[in-house]
Design a protein around this nucleic acid. Structure first.
Lengths: 163, 163
DNA sequence: TTAGATTAAATCGTACGCGATTTAGATAGG
DNA sequence: CCTATCTAAATCGCGTACGATTTAATCTAA
C-alpha cells in the first residue's frame, strides 16, 4: 500500500471533506455518462447485430487476431464469466471461431471468420457518427480523454488492480 | 434534430476523421473507468449489504423521501425494468417500503424505513474512503467532474434524451 | 359517460458483469 | 514418475440493464 493510505485513516482535511460530495458527483456522472454513451451506440450497432460489449470485443479482435480469451480479458477488463458466453454468441453469429491452443490445451484461441473481418467495413462508420451525435467541440473531447486517462492510470496504481 | 446533424451526413473534416480514434478511446475509457469505480465501491458497500446501483438509489432516497418510483427513474437514469426489482430487494432487506399513492393509484411511493435512515450513518464513511483510494489530486478530480458535466449536458441536448 | 389515449409501474426475455466454484491441462518438487 | 500446485477457461448464481409487452389507473374528448 502506498503512503497515500496513511492520510486516509485519521482526520480528514477540509479539502477531503469537501471532496466527499465531489466524489459522489464524479462517480455518478461517470456511471451515468457511461451508460448513456452505450445507449447512444445501441441504434448504430443494432444493424450490425452487435451489442456494445460485443462491439468492443470485435474492436480488440480487429486490432489483433487470433488471440486467446485471456488476452481479450486483459485488453477489455472483462471477466471470463462475461467473455465466455459473449464469445459464444459471436461464434453463433459466425463472426469468430474458437479452438483450443494445441501448444497449451488450457487456452482457447479466438479468431475472426471471413464474416467477422467483413463486418469491420460497416463498423468503421460508427465512431464518426458517435462523435457527431455527441456534438462536443474537439478540445472538450480531448480534455475529457485526458481526465479519464489520469483516472484510469490512478485506478491501475491504486485500488483497482488490473481488471 | 439539431443543425449539427447536417454536418454529419456529408464529408468529414480532417478533425472529424482524427476524432474517430479519439471517440473509441473516450468511450472505452469511460466504460472501463466506470466499471472499475464500481469495483472500487464493492468492498466498501458489501458490509452495508448494498450493491452500487442500490447505493445510488439509497443516496437519492436520503436526499429526498418519500418519492415515487418515477422520480427515482428520472434522478438515476434507470429504467422501471431495472428499478422495480432493485427496489423490491431493498424492501426485502427492510431498508425501504413501497405503497401505492392514494392520490393516484398508478404511482408507487417509496419511503425509507427506520433501518434505511439508520444506514446513512455507516454509508457516510464511504465517499471519503473512495476519494482516498483513487488517490488523485483535487484539481484532477475537479477537471474530471467538469469534463463529465459537459459530456452529460451534451448527451442531454443531443443523442441521449433523458434516460 | 364512455371509448380511446396516455401514463406509471411491473413483468418478461436477453445480455452483460462478476465472485465463487469447477474442470481440465500444465508445471514443479520430491 | 506422481502428487501437489497452479493456471485458463467454463459454469453457476445473483444482480443489474433495457427494450417490449402487459396491466391498471387516469385523463380526454365526443
Amino acid at each position: 500500500m502506498s503512503d497515500k493510505d496513511e492520510t486516509c485513516e485519521n482526520g480528514l482535511s477540509p479539502d477531503a471533506l469537501r471532496a466527499t460530495t465531489l466524489d459522489a458527483q464524479i462517480c455518478f456522472a461517470l456511471y451515468s455518462a457511461s451508460s448513456r454513451m452505450t445507449k447512444l451506440y445501441r441504434p448504430l450497432l443494432e444493424p450490425l447485430g452487435l451489442t456494445y460489449p460485443q462491439y468492443i470485443a470485435m474492436l480488440a479482435l480487429w486490432e489483433k487476431a487470433p488471440r486467446s480469451v485471456g488476452s481479450l480479458k486483459e485488453a477489455l477488463g472483462l471477466d471470463f464469466g462475461t467473455l465466455s458466453p459473449l464469445l459464444k454468441r459471436l461464434e453463433a453469429q459466425g463472426l469468430v471461431d474458437r479452438r483450443r491452443d494445441p501448444k497449451d490445451e488450457r487456452r482457447v484461441i479466438v479468431d475472426l471468420t471471413e464474416a467477422g473481418r467483413a463486418l469491420r467495413v460497416s463498423a468503421s462508420k460508427v465512431p464518426e457518427e458517435i462523435v457527431c451525435r455527441v456534438g462536443l467541440p474537439r478540445e472538450t473531447m480531448v480534455s475529457l480523454r485526458e481526465a479519464l486517462r489520469q483516472l484510469n492510470a490512478a485506478l491501475d496504481e491504486n485500488g483497482a488492480p488490473k481488471a
